[in-house]
Design a protein around this nucleic acid. Sequence first.
DNA 1: TATTTAAATTGTAAAAAATACTATAACTTG
DNA 2: CAAGTTATAGTATTTTTTACAATTTAAATA
Lengths: 242, 242
Amino acid sequence: MMQVNTSSDLQEERQRLDAFFRFGISVDCVVFGYDGENLQVLLIERGAEPYKGFEAIPGDLVSLNEDIDQATKRVLNDLTGLPDIYLEQLSTFGAVERHPMGRVVTVVYYALLDKNLYNPHPASWASEAYWKNLDEIGEMAFDHRQILEAAVQHLHHKVQHQPIGFELLPEEFTLAQLQHLYETILNTSFDKGNFRKKMLSMNVLIPLDKMQKEVRHRPARLYRFDQQRYEQLVQKGYLFEL
Amino acid sequence: MMQVNTSSDLQEERQRLDAFFRFGISVDCVVFGYDGENLQVLLIERGAEPYKGFEAIPGDLVSLNEDIDQATKRVLNDLTGLPDIYLEQLSTFGAVERHPMGRVVTVVYYALLDKNLYNPHPASWASEAYWKNLDEIGEMAFDHRQILEAAVQHLHHKVQHQPIGFELLPEEFTLAQLQHLYETILNTSFDKGNFRKKMLSMNVLIPLDKMQKEVRHRPARLYRFDQQRYEQLVQKGYLFEL
DNA sequence: TATTTAAATTGTAAAAAATACTATAACTTG
DNA sequence: CAAGTTATAGTATTTTTTACAATTTAAATA
């Protein structure tokens, strides 16, 4: 098929389309953290309209010349002071009435991190920024409640098939810490010996020559996650599964 | 925190935001089909600028007052004549330069179906609409090549954890057909007896009192997928896995 | 009609993995 | 050093997976 497109062709078409180009795009960043005890999520209090004073997932409108993936990092940093972290796209919410200021479609990302590493500080139009236990969350701005529920569900599913749990822990951790994390996320309990055997048999943990410090009992060996090894296994078709 | 928002407050804010509300949103529908032999995908040839004459995934701009999920059904029907089918959201592509007519963020959906049931007919600005084998696809419009690859990868992953294979088959099918489908998608082969045992032990297949017809050997029993039973199992925490 | 053929279906023994549980080691604190 | 606590290792039992062989069925052919 031959292509004939003059510049005026395109201009005409662009005009016809003008009515379609009235959307706003935002990104929302669901950041999960773990403090060794509970699973938490990073929230802000909105200091600007709409929904001023409401709890919200950190998020903001994307600029016309800004890449969406990039926007997540900027927004998260602007509002909470968190540095560049890897955020994975989750899904997109686009109900017609979800935003009172116009038609805004929001792309939701999520991340997991060791919350002891970073302390959030509110900035820009965020009046507060803090961690909150998942089960203590009430009303939220926009459809953020719904978004958060989708993120939690995704986490439950994902943690059973990929070793994402490690992102929530310090670089070096004990098997008991890892087990407690999984038990928290999945709300179950595992046999200690068998959990250990299963984890170690996957060959994605590197045992270190270090021991836990400052505990009042036999100290446990520390391990770290072997990202390279994990990727090799995935290449070969191995699937991490609990 | 007290909320004070007069109507003029909001108007002011809306004006400040005007520069952000210049995005276009589109939906793209990756529809996979299976003809008993190969895995295929539904494509159109674009009959309008930009990328006139190129192969593309069926998709179009969303209207300002149109729900995104709804838009998928309209678009797919407009371009290819396919009726309402269930489409699942996959992910969103928003690179700055992905569309030559402006900033367009596209939300990608996908569906699976028995391609013998529906015959695509091009309409609206689609000059062609047809099924094509996955391994015979060349250049495509926009970033559709990239989108398609993401969809295929998602399919590979998903088929191993959810019984989506059934959507690609006729309502009534034999275990051999099901096995061949899985072998095609995953590009492997399974032991016949063990595949049968595994599938049946999941209790999501209803054996029918019907047999295959018009084959020149012992006819196989027909089964159908038990959606209800599957949902019950998922509720109870059971996870379908190959 | 008897025989052949192709595939469906069933069965089974061996191997591997998951599970439940016990025993021992290592460290801290009083 | 004894007591307490948790880590770590080990083991026997059960369950699941795997590989493969045997049997059944209906159509096609001779």
